[in-house]
Design a protein around this nucleic acid. Structure first.
Length: 470
DNA sequence: CCTCCTTTGAAGGAT
DNA sequence: ATCCTTCAAAGGAGG
């Protein structure tokens, strides 16, 4: 993306855009435009997801055209080149150096990325760009702020308008309740909805008080013919696929508000979960809020949100899974053992991996699929989503790839030293083990010892798995 | 209660 | 360079 850090920070080393598909059969990928969740579900159910690559009344040549079989170098290079071009464009100057720090819409040039159908910035976007902002520039320079701005490019505008409209100047000392009270409605003006809202995507559940029941489905996706759950008229449940389209905006304060929806990077601190941090935190008042809501080790330094120590939704304390059960029960049954264990775990907060493109896509679409097919089982849902993912057009996928790349970039800025390896569970973690064994075949028993030995060496046999230690 | 399932993609280590 | 493994989300299913 256009350098968030004003420099050549673009290259994360991941040529993730437009990765070639697995060969699942092009025919299958040509899921017709009338494909529906029901059919997907039927496929899943009938064949237990036996990906029979039988050509399905595909026909949709346009679809096939949109998605050239080997999604690879050609498009990838083009994409990257175009991205770079975008960064070099005059309006890409928004991202040159600190100057753009005052703009919350730091991602705008990406909107003009070649991924978008017409490659132009929507009038809405331009309008938004020109909105004067009441930003706290000092804060904006931090990766955290960039992150916030990326996630909630409009928030400051909204905050500004809030201040003007509601006299929120007294936010100098806002209480969390205060912040929370300024929930959704005030930020949902259609004209404020920026095309960049895809960056904030994720599902409505983050933002709506509750997902409407499937039976309330009102409209139908013109593209897929799949009924959609109803949504506020000023909020599109989808990414804006065309310039000027209105994107969905989960509540910008969502991460400040306990929600039912699962955030992308939930910070769970005493039941406090949220999606990515939002730009609301730009001001100093936020830091006081953070101080009140986060444990000290997660609260950024006052008035200087430094790269390190910045609260990030990717940080999840190990108490995540107990947030509902243990936080309630814990007060009753808090054993010393648990305490010591907790403290031990607190020392190294779990920084989650940034979501990849598909994960972001799933995050956004899952609710829809669930609503459409009344299927709850995630495994089946994910199969459907996987198919739909492949059925997406280049441009549509590109948005997610781009979003994912930004995720990684910000994640990297926020946690320079973090490695995906940090999240690996020991030498041979419990997770996914069985499946891998299945996939890898029978030779596992033989290979495992060898791998442990190779991996940790003889001097670290304590890290070996059980079989290896025998 | 914990793990598996199921998807794709990213990352890192091993070969 | 390629292969293998793990993890990211999600929530029902099953041990």
């Amino acid at each position: 993306m256009p350098q968030l850090n004003g420099g050549g920070g673009d290259d994360l080393g991941a040529n993730d855009e437009m990765i070639s598909f697995k060969d699942e059969g092009e025919q299958e990928e040509k899921i017709s435009e009338i494909s529906s969740a029901e059919r997907d579900l039927a496929d899943v159910k009938s064949s237990l997801v036996n990906e029979s690559e039988t050509p399905q009344n595909s026909s949709s040549d346009s679809e096939a055209e949109r998605r050239p079989p080997p999604r690879s170098e050609s498009f990838r290079d083009k994409s990257r080149d175009s991205l770079e071009d975008a960064a070099k464009r005059p309006d890409g100057g928004l991202f040159k150096g600190p100057a753009y720090g005052g703009y919350p819409f730091i991602m705008i040039p990406d909107l003009t990325s070649p991924y978008l159908p017409n490659g132009s910035l929507s009038p809405t976007a331009r309008t938004c760009v020109n909105v004067p902002l009441d930003l706290h520039l000092a804060s904006c320079c931090s990766p955290f702020m960039q992150y916030l701005q990326m996630k909630w490019p409009l928030l400051d505008v909204q905050a500004g308008s809030l201040q003007s409209r509601q006299g929120l100047k007294d936010t100098r000392s806002p209480s969390p309740a205060h912040i929370v009270s300024n929930k959704v409605p005030v930020v949902q003006h259609p004209h404020h909805v920026h095309p960049l809202t895809p960056l904030i995507t994720y599902s409505n559940e983050h933002f709506t008080p509750g997902n409407p029941p499937p039976h309330l489905q009102a409209d139908v996706d013109p593209k897929t013919g799949i009924p959609r759950p109803p949504h506020p008229p000023d909020i599109s449940p989808y990414y804006p696929l065309s310039p000027g389209a209105v994107g969905q905006i989960p509540h910008p304060l969502g991460w400040l508000v306990p929600q039912q929806g699962q955030p992308v990077y939930p910070i769970t601190t005493g039941g406090f979960r949220h999606p990515y941090p939002t730009a609301l935190t730009v001001n100093a008042s936020m830091s006081s809020f953070l101080s009140s809501r986060f444990p000290p080790h997660m609260v950024p330094p006052h008035h200087s949100l430094h790269t390190t120590g910045i609260p990030h939704p990717a940080i999840v304390t190990p108490t995540v899974k107990q947030e509902s059960s243990q936080s309630d029960m814990g007060s009753l049954h808090s054993s010393k053992h648990q305490d010591s264990k907790k403290e031990e775990e607190k020392k190294k907060p779990h920084i989650k991996k940034p979501l990849n493109a598909f994960m972001l896509y799933m995050k956004e679409m899952r609710a829809k699929v669930v609503a459409e097919c009344t299927l709850k089982e995630s495994a089946a849902i994910n199969q459907i989503l996987g198919r739909r993912w492949h059925a997406l057009s280049r441009e549509e996928q590109a948005k997610y790839y781009e979003l994912a790349r930004k995720e990684r970039q910000l994640h990297m800025q926020l946690y320079p030293g973090w490695s995906a390896r940090d999240n690996y569970v020991g030498a041979y973690g419990k997770k996914k083990k069985r499946k891998r064994e299945k996939q890898q075949g029978e030779a596992n028993d033989l290979s495992a010892p060898k791998k442990c030995r190779a991996r940790f060496g003889l001097d670290q046999q304590n890290n070996w798995c059980g079989p290896c230690s025998l």
